[in-house]
Each structure stands twice: as structure tokens, then as C-alpha cells.
Design a protein around this nucleic acid. Structure first.
Lengths: 237, 237
DNA sequence: GAGTGGTCTAGACCACGGA
DNA sequence: CCGTGGTCTAGACCACTCC
């Protein structure tokens, strides 16, 4: 990547994480950053806007850009973060057990969710996420076979996203999530340590490629006591 | 507002909503928009990036910008949308009942949430949101009194945000949400139509002003069956 | 008044898609 | 090849904060 604004963005994040820029202090001004990185102001501003959108800084007109400390609390589910990246940040022992991996013809519900028809073959991947010694998430992934021709248990145990992006070179464009609470099904009770709970938190995830084709539908079914979703929002519009 | 990119942004949204630009078709190219709006390309691009971030379009290099149809499904809780804006979009009868409105000294928990001390006075506003004839949300809002000196029942029944932004002219910068599921308290059972449910979905909301001061902490406690959170995410970084 | 961030311009070169 | 979007530049003027 030659992108200057991305280099600056990452460099500033690095300095924030290393403590070189401390929380609640000002970053160098935009004009100073122009000199430091030998670039133009609009390029510096692109980097700063990224930092602002992602919760690293707050820009205040006439004063400067303050480093926020909020970022460290952000449980990184908001967005397209995979379980592998997640457990790394949590720093707890975790594993993924693949319970099912097969090609199916979707039923009517699934065909609707995937915006396709019942003849279009689909990979079904059912995985259980363990953290510590508890089974806390039941992930049911469905990929269009024409987008993802091959899948192996090994890939599913590691990161499917890494495989899709790095090996298949598919570019993920955007995703829509719907979070709701549902009564636990027999399947939930079989695969999860629900204890006395009779409900699960369901995160439905629709993932689209850069060319706007829907290629994945996922249901993440969480034990209610371990579920936590953090979201950072900015008054944009 | 003189901001050209914002005018273009809103104008294009209008045309999408009126059907002038149809879903799954291309917008005019950036160069065409430059001519149409008599402006520079970077300004057009600022507008298009806003549209992209908010789920209206997908930009494809070498081809153009496609109008997405996803936007109409976006239940607008993601972000800082107030109940009033929300019920308008749902088009269902709704009302807000103010159950409590008083100044308190925060207990330790609340003082921690508001990043203040137990001597700093706080407005406590407890409201119940009705949609149709069911009580579905219990909103417990806490505002720092030094930020919001006066509150009335009338303001609380309408939109506190409108009052804060339009009358007090406080500028909201960003917010952090935490969604979790908890056992229902006696208070929840008293104020909500929980039926047989014994759990509630809790949305904790920390709202910061432009100058990074935290001025509000809110707990929205939802009946599980009516809870739904939709999130649109883009693979940025 | 000096310094900050916010907006805007008129160019430039590049990478990609499709004919 | 041309048209598309992606990046970058070197300037300009404005609104705001603080002294």
C-alpha cells in the first residue's frame, strides 16, 4: 500500500498505543503533521478523519485534536472482526470446534436470507466457540458455493475471513447486522452451556462483497450472560 | 449551512428516496456530478463518501457508484437517534410517560458511570416508552446538572435531544453503546410488560459533547421480544 | 492577531473495468 | 483505448479559540 493517509493513520495509532501520544492531550496540529510527514494538508486530514471515525481522537475547531481513551474499551465486534482477532485481544484461552461442514441446498428461509433460490448450493459451517471451558457462541455460517468453492475443516478452525480475503482475494464491502433475542432451540441447548437460561442472543450478519453481491449469511447465537456488544457512534450526518 | 458537500449529500438522498435514482443502478459519475453541482471533484467525493458510509451507495472503482436498497431496512437505533425520530419512522402510535424527574446525588455506581463524584448533582429522568398498548422500553437517563441546568416534564415527553441541541446549543460529539442481557429487576417488572420473560436487554449509552466531556449516561431497558438493533458496517480501515 | 480546524478549488497522476 | 473511481497537491478563505 502506497497510500500516504493510511500510513499516517496507522503511524498515529501506533504512537497512541505506545503512549507517545497520551490520552487527553493534543496531537500535533494539522500544519505540524504536514511538515512531519512531508505531505499536503488534505492528506493529513484524511488520516485524522479516519482516527476520529474510529474513536481514537476528537477534533475541536480552533483548538486541536484530542486523543481519546475510549478506544481501549471497544470490544471489537462492531464491524467485521473475526473471532480469531477477537480472542487475541481478550487474551483468554479459546478454541473453535467445527461441528458441521457440508454442502447443502438451502431451505426457503435460508434461500431468502441469502437472496438466492433453493437450487443454488451453499456451504453450511456450524462451529462452536469456546472461551475458557464454556461453550458460549454457536456460529452457523452459510456461504454461496459459487463465491467460495472450497472449504476445509482446517480453514474453518482458523479464520475463514483470512482465507476469503488473502487466498480467494474476495473483497468485503459492507455488512448488515441484526441483533435480537430469541427462545433457545434444541440445537442451542445441545451445543451451548446455557445453564438455566432459555434464551439466546442472535446476531444475524449479512456480508456483501465490493460488487454488492451477498455472499454470506451468518447466525451467531450467544449465551445471554456472556453476550456484549460495544458500538462507537459519531454524530455524522 | 453553506456546506456544499452536505447539500449534495442531502440532495442525492432525496433523489434516492424519491426514486429518481433507483436501487441497483449507477449514480451519475463523479465528473458528471461536478458539472451538475458546479463544484470540484473532491467536494463531490466528500458527499459520495458520506453516502457510502451511511449505506446509501457502494462505490466500485472503474465502474461507478451503485445505489443500495439496504438503507430502507436500517432500523435507526445505531447512532444517536432519539425515540421521537424513531417512532416517526415506524409509523406506529407511541407515547412516552415520564415516571420520575428529579435532581439526585449519584450513588457510587452512577458516579463511576458519569466519570464524576458523588457530590456532583445529576438529573434523573425515568421514562417508559409505549408502542401500541405495550410498555416496551424503560429509559433511565442521567444528565450532569452543570451541563443541563433545567429540565421539565414537557421537555422529557418530547425530545430531550432537541432541547439540548437547539435550545441549550450543546454539541454532541460521540457516544459509546454497550448492549447486554440482564435478569429483570423488580423495577423492570413494575414498569414493563414483560409477560413471562425474566430478562431484559440493556443498552448503556455514554454520550460525550464536542469538547469530550461526558454529560449523559443512559440505560435503556428493553423487553426481549421487541428488541431489535440494526447496524450497518463498512470495511474501512 | 496568531493559530487552529473546516471547506473548497483546479489541477495532476494512478489503477481498474470494459469495449 | 476511454471513462471510472482513488490518491495527492498547493494553495485559498473562513470560523473559531485564546491571548
Amino acid at each position: 500500500m502506497n497510500k500516504k493517509y493510511m500510513m499516517i493513520y496507522r503511524d498515529v495509532i501506533g504512537k497512541i498505543e505506545k503512549g507517545e501520544y497520551e490520552a487527553n492531550t493534543f496531537l500535533p496540529s494539522e500544519n505540524e503533521l504536514v511538515l512531519q510527514y512531508d505531505t499536503s494538508r488534505e492528506t493529513v486530514r484524511k488520516a485524522l478523519n479516519l482516527l476520529s471515525q474510529n474513536g481514537y481522537i476528537q477534533k475541536i475547531r480552533g483548538k486541536g485534536s484530542i486523543v481519546l481513551e475510549i478506544k481501549r474499551f471497544n470490544f471489537p465486534i462492531s464491524g467485521l472482526v473475526s473471532f480469531k482477532e477477537l480472542s487475541k485481544q481478550l487474551g483468554r484461552s479459546s478454541k473453535t470446534v467445527v461441528e458441521k461442514l457440508k454442502i447443502i441446498k438451502p431451505d426457503l428461509f435460508l434461500a431468502t436470507q441469502l437472496e438466492t433460490d433453493e437450487e443454488d448450493e451453499v456451504w453450511e459451517v456450524v462451529r462452536v466457540r469456546h472461551i475458557g471451558d464454556e461453550r458460549i457462541i454457536l456460529d452457523k455460517d452459510y456461504f454461496k458455493k459459487k463465491c467460495v468453492p472450497d472449504l476445509t475443516i482446517k480453514i474453518c478452525e482458523e479464520s475463514i475471513y483470512e482465507y476469503i480475503e488473502k487466498t480467494l482475494c474476495l473483497e468485503i464491502g459492507y455488512a448488515k447486522k441484526v441483533i435480537s433475542v430469541q427462545e433457545a432451540t434444541e440445537e442451542d441447548k445441545q451445543y451451548l452451556d446455557l445453564h438455566h437460561y432459555n434464551m439466546v442472543v442472535v446476531v444475524q450478519n449479512y456480508v456483501y462483497l465490493n460488487d454488492t453481491t451477498l455472499f454470506q449469511y451468518t447466525e451467531s447465537r450467544h449465551t445471554p450472560d456472556k453476550f456484549k456488544f460495544v458500538d462507537f457512534a459519531r454524530r455524522n450526518y
